[in-house]
Amino acid sequence: MDKNLHILNGDSTLNIFKDSGIEGDTFVWKEVLSNGPVDSDFNSEKFWVQRDAFMSNEFDISTGMYDKEVRRPFENLTESLNQYTEITLWFEYDLFCQINMIALIHWLGKTSFQGTASLVCVGDIDDSGKLYALGEISPETYKTVFENRLKLGSREFDYATDVYEVYTSDSPDDLYNYILMPFGEFPYLPNALESHFRRFPSLQTGLTEIEEQFIIFIQAGESDKMKLIGKMLRWQTHQGFGDLQYINILNRMAPIFKDFDKLELPTQIDSQLISRNYFLGGADISAWRWDKNEETLILAESAS
């Protein structure tokens, strides 16, 4: 008898999925691999310890909560994979989802799973030109996108592994290869990777794209932090971040402000006051700069 598992990208997707009538067990992947350090050895002890430390600090998670809510459920899932005949991953077009998606496809291709693996990745649903998230479509549409799901094979597994290994390496510039040579089965990945590149400090301004947008809104008169975060959420296109991610970025910018509580900026902004002591994937942010003119990452030491 067939038994299906659906690995979902978040609780909001789970709520709509339950109303879709699609059969199968569900598992919600609660990681944020687009942020913080990510070890190349997925699902290893080093991977989990590193992610626990980052997630607990970045999102103020209580001691033991990450282990309980993320690590142990995933390890239990890994042990039970072969009770299923099909596993379907459900993700979206944005950077947040694309990195999680690539990591899980890489992982699934390395497991002993013997059944069918498939992918639902939404974005372009109709002719409107709008990219839709899973939380923006109806339960009935879930049935349609599920019927049109992509069956994953060796080509998809190998490609995902290549991308994951570069993302978790210390040479993020090599990700540009996957923009220049896109893979048709993952049509949203190039734009997501471009958004990733723009998270590195600009060679021209010393600020990331997100930091620059914060400043644009503030200089236009926004002085309320929560309204500012709301504007950032509406501004984003391929980032897919939540409010906590933008709050953390804004807090990291605090040293450049004349008065952070009032969001008052000085006449001259010194981007060097912002700490770059953090990682994205395997990349040390302090070691790289984004050249807007050439649209490429370069080593900071070669730019000085």
Rank of each mutant, 00 (worst) to 15 (best):
E264S: 14
E264P: 03
A283T: 07
F257V: 10
D270A: 06
A254N: 11
N251P: 00
R252C: 02
T237F: 06
Q272S: 15
P255C: 07
I249Y: 00
I269T: 05
I256S: 03
S271I: 04
G281S: 11
L265I: 08
Y278K: 05
F257G: 11
D284H: 07
F279M: 14
T237V: 12
S271L: 02
R276A: 01
H238S: 06
I249W: 00
N277W: 00
L263A: 13
L273Y: 03
Q272W: 02
I274W: 11
D270Q: 08
I249N: 01
L250V: 10
F279I: 04
L263K: 13
D259M: 04
L250F: 09
Q268H: 13
S275P: 01
D259C: 06
N277E: 15
Y246K: 10
A283Q: 06
Y278W: 14
F260H: 09
N277L: 04
Q239G: 00
L273S: 05
F241Y: 15
H238A: 03
N251G: 00
L273K: 15
I249C: 00
A254P: 02
F241S: 09
F241E: 05
I269N: 03
T237M: 02
D243Q: 11
I247W: 08
L265K: 10
L265S: 09
Y278E: 09
N277S: 14
P266C: 08
A283E: 03
K258L: 14
F260S: 12
G242R: 12
P255I: 05
E264I: 15
I249E: 13
Q268D: 11
G242Q: 10
P266A: 07
K258P: 02
I247T: 13
Q245K: 07
N251V: 05
L273F: 04
L265R: 08
H238F: 14
L273H: 03
I249K: 05
T267I: 08
T237I: 07
M253A: 06
H238C: 01
S275R: 07
E264N: 12
Q272P: 00
F257M: 10
I256E: 00
I269W: 02
D261W: 03
G282P: 09
D261S: 15
N251L: 13
N251R: 14
G281P: 11
Y278V: 02
S275K: 10
T237P: 00
R252L: 09
A283D: 06
M253C: 08
S275H: 04
G242H: 12
